[in-house]
Design a protein around this nucleic acid. Structure first.
Lengths: 209, 209, 209, 209
DNA sequence: TATGAATGAGCTTTCATTCAT
DNA sequence: TATGAATGAAAGCTCATTCAT
């Protein structure tokens, strides 16, 4: 995996850094959702975070650092949550449950997901590479789950089909975030989960027909 | 459908307007792809279009107009191409062909698609509404094709399943644009089309199992 | 008197020049009144005059030429009108009549007067000198009238008092244009004329008391 | 009276605001006198004020704010000075003294007065209303003085005559500013004051003759 | 550590003027 | 003569970043 980016600080107190960064991230998420990365000003971020512009710059180096912190924090949360489903691996049931948890997670973090996928391109190259590697890490979790099913014999997919299926899941989840404007009048999140799960599982179960 | 937005001009010669707007759109696509809407300057756009900043502003009123022109032109091309498949409607074959054409279209217009979905939020409200309505129009084309299959008895889907399936196609196509960085090392476009088509068709053919 | 400024033209046909200039002046008056000299654009002037921007520049050299043409035309009209009162010079009655005509003239040309006194400073130096000399010419008409009265023995003023009195008249007339916002709710033009005339005549009649 | 306009600031330190605003006003007066409001650039204003363009915009929001600050400051000074004449009200002597002080004040603030009356129209509507209300406030001071004389029986004027007389004073003072180019070769300020005072007092003393 | 005033490069947009047709 | 598309200098304003306190 690409290495984590180090965001430089003038402050030494590690626990203070963590507190401030959480404030910064929360402020960033709210503002970027509202007006996008470019239209949000550092002054606004500092104000929303509850301190002065000077203090903000004690904890970051550039405005893009804020975006990076936001993206990093979102991915970490997603990966963390996906990694801890207490399920029996290698069964259709566990796959269903993972999909469900992932979709619910997205529904809970709509703003964060939207920001992440719309503003990633504004990151500096290095940071973008890192974020993309995180994205792959997330896909890898689905890959692993599906692979377990294949190993268990409940699914029959080759390498290429497997990776496509994992991506498919990742994308269909995200599309709930991006296309909610078109979806929310037609489906509850539960309906959406059920239908998407059906569509997906029927697709992969009969891939070779 | 939401009404088309009128972009004001100081120039009277309609054919000249068309020529210049095409230049502007081409310049916009290239620059927005390269650096995104916010980092591209109007001066750069003018230069890339081959004329002066003053001339640019004879054909648009604000920078956002350029983004709108780009988005509008892309959707018009997509909808135009999708609307003219010479196929027998209501058969799986024709659906396959449509999917294939759509995916190939996206592969040909990777930059345009990427821009459209990443920068739409930077459009002024009215223009955004219009672009979203175009998006729905595109989805509606798939809806119609699938509905024809249902009517013909080759597919069995209810309203909700049908809309979801149509969205599914739209999204999977787009994801070729957004995730090509992760895909291109594993699949050719032809492979991608074949696998996605299989996954989709198997999913919808067995929706109720 | 300072020499008249020559506004250069590419056009040879003198009668055409006159026609176009009249159009330009009318357009200038309307626009300058509405938005001031600086906020009115040459495009707007051309359009209001009924021809293209290119044609406008066939009859003037710079935007300031338009202002000069406007100011020149106004002063010429004022001086022309003031010079042709059919009155017996050297009597209080004729002075009263002149004041009356001057004030009525201003009431008829409110826009023009307002423009002239508010935008004069935007003229190029040479043109400004000329316009100021026209202003003095106007004052000189009043000087002459008052001087006639002095000669006739109906008024008793020395040089300095006489010039001041003439200026006084010029200014009180203009102030009807500038302060109409404060005056119009309290006086009709006829009332204003009567009161100002009284105030002035009583002042000069008893200057030495 | 129309409410004072609030000019927004990003700076919190009130005493610093006052210092900087004074610098801005001084710079504004000098530049507007020299080249007029429209020809003076914000960069020039900032430079003349002694700081950067960025700093200028920490203390104002638009260029028009500078004009407003200038006009407001002038009127406040005028009204302040006029309000504090230590005279016995209701006598011709006190009226003479007030006229004298007002004319001297204008002679001291020639630039300021010229700017104020030539550029007021460039103010945004709200600010213009406010400035005009200040103008009326100034006239009201003269109204009050003359009214005191009427009450004391030393002058005999009705409502309409009184308001006209007060305006007369205001205007004759201003005309020293506007027409100094024509006056200064003929009168010292002291002569001008004496002659204008005579003219005015004789006018009002014999209004009914 | 925290503050916020100061900075100035750089942005979008306007508009007087020109000149080929 | 008349046209109007093209030009680009110059304007107002923003905002990421710094640094003295």
């Amino acid at each position: 995996m690409t290495d984590k980016i180090h965001v430089e600080t003038s402050v030494k107190d590690e626990s203070l850094i963590e507190i401030r960064r959480k404030q910064i991230i929360r402020a960033g998420v709210n503002l970027f959702r509202e007006k996008g990365f470019h239209r949000a000003t550092t002054r606004e971020i500092a104000k929303a975070a509850g301190f002065s512009i000077g203090t903000l710059y004690e904890y970051i180096r550039t405005k893009e650092d804020v975006l990076y912190l936001v993206c990093d924090s979102i991915f970490n949360e997603v990966i963390d949550r996906l990694s801890h489903f207490p399920t029996k691996p290698g069964t259709i049931e566990s796959l269903k449950e993972a999909i469900r948890q992932y979709f619910l997670l997205i529904d809970n973090m709509l703003d964060e997901f939207t920001i992440m996928y719309q503003e990633t391109k504004s990151l500096p190259k290095e940071a973008m590479q890192y974020v993309l590697s995180k994205e792959l890490e997330m896909v890898a979790i689905f890959q692993k789950m599906i692979a377990d099913c294949v190993e268990n014999g409940v699914l029959d997919l080759n390498e290429k089909e497997l990776f496509l299926a994992a991506n498919h899941l990742a994308v269909q989840g995200q599309s709930w975030a991006f296309r909610k404007w078109a979806m929310k009048h037609r489906y509850t999140i539960e309906e959406y989960i059920e239908l998407q799960t059906n569509l997906f599982l029927n697709g992969v179960l009969h891939f070779r027909n």
